[in-house]
């Protein structure tokens, strides 16, 4: 299913889309595939595969740690593409989240081509703003990859409008000024940001990320957004589990709880 279809379907069901994030190759290639498929089966509408990167400035300690583990275990860019292929083949809608340098190193057009061939429908770029994205816009147009750029509470209306013009699929609203990681309370800046986005472009689906860790928070965010993006809390259930079976069980349980949350808005 394309991103647009996924959001349209959720809208028809009067609920939000649940986007679950997991770093590729964490803790190993095989296990990360297993985890992503479990998330898909337990109710994540979109699997956001994060390409592990040595210098993830947008990410908090949990995703950093998981990325470090993946890199230490030798995960490569081509493994990430393989993982996407496996998860997409299992029927999940897959988007990639990646810092820019690994894409530039791979070759921007070749990356878009191989990403599309692997079955990903979109790509989120946390450290690439549209101002610097001419090559990516051309490549993603050529290979029909949806582009998700970020907007933040600090973004001016002019920048939000410019960013929305360059997004396709959905826009990623960073709910608070900070890095990824579950928070005790949902940011009060988030609803205001979503309202500003909608007043500029009522059509573009808005995914809200940063800080959601449980079903109640998912419901809170789902009440004012089109998509709820969860990463650190899901990853933590694997990181903190005493063994693999427990980790997978907790991951499924949290995914199901979040899926319920996005329907309970």
């Amino acid at each position: 299913m394309s991103i647009a279809q996924t959001f349209a379907k959720a809208k028809a069901e009067n609920r939000s889309v649940l986007v679950g994030c997991m770093p590729a190759g964490f803790p190993t290639v095989e296990h990360s595939i297993e985890q992503m498929i479990a998330m898909h089966e337990a109710g994540c509408d979109v699997i956001e595969v994060e390409l592990p990167y040595s210098d993830p400035v947008m990410d908090g300690p949990v995703i950093q740690k998981a990325s470090d583990i993946a890199l230490a275990n030798g995960v490569r860019t081509r493994d990430t593409l393989k993982i996407i292929e496996a998860v997409a083949s299992a029927g999940a809608t897959v988007v990639l989240m990646t810092y820019w340098n690994p894409v530039e190193k791979y070759g921007v057009d070749a990356f878009a081509r191989d990403l599309a061939a692997a079955g990903a429908t979109g790509m989120i770029t946390p450290d690439l703003i549209p101002d610097e994205a001419a090559e990516w816009i051309a490549a993603s147009d050529a290979h029909r990859i949806d582009r998700t750029f970020l907007v933040a509470p600090s973004s001016t209306d002019e920048r939000i409008a410019m960013t929305l013009e360059n997004c396709r699929g959905f826009v990623y609203a960073t709910a608070l000024m900070g890095v990824t990681g579950a928070r005790k309370a949902v940011s009060s800046q988030a609803p205001e940001l979503v309202a500003r986005i909608r007043s500029i472009d009522p059509e573009m689906p808005v995914g809200v990320g940063l800080g959601v860790g449980n079903g109640r928070q998912a419901a809170e965010v789902a009440a004012f957004s089109d998509g709820v993006i969860v990463g650190s809390a899901l990853i933590r259930s694997v990181l903190e589990a005493p063994d693999r079976a427990t980790g997978l069980r907790d991951l499924r349980a949290l995914s199901a709880e979040l899926a319920e949350g996005v329907r309970d808005r």
């Binding site: 400035v57 947008m58 820019w100 946390p126 450290d127 690439l128 703003i129 610097e132 750029f149 970020l150 907007v151 933040a152 509470p153 600090s154 973004s155 001016t156 920048r159 960013t163 960073t174 000024m177």
Partner: peptide
Amino acid sequence: FVPEALIK
């Protein structure tokens, strides 16, 4: 090449 949150 930074997160949008820093642009302002």
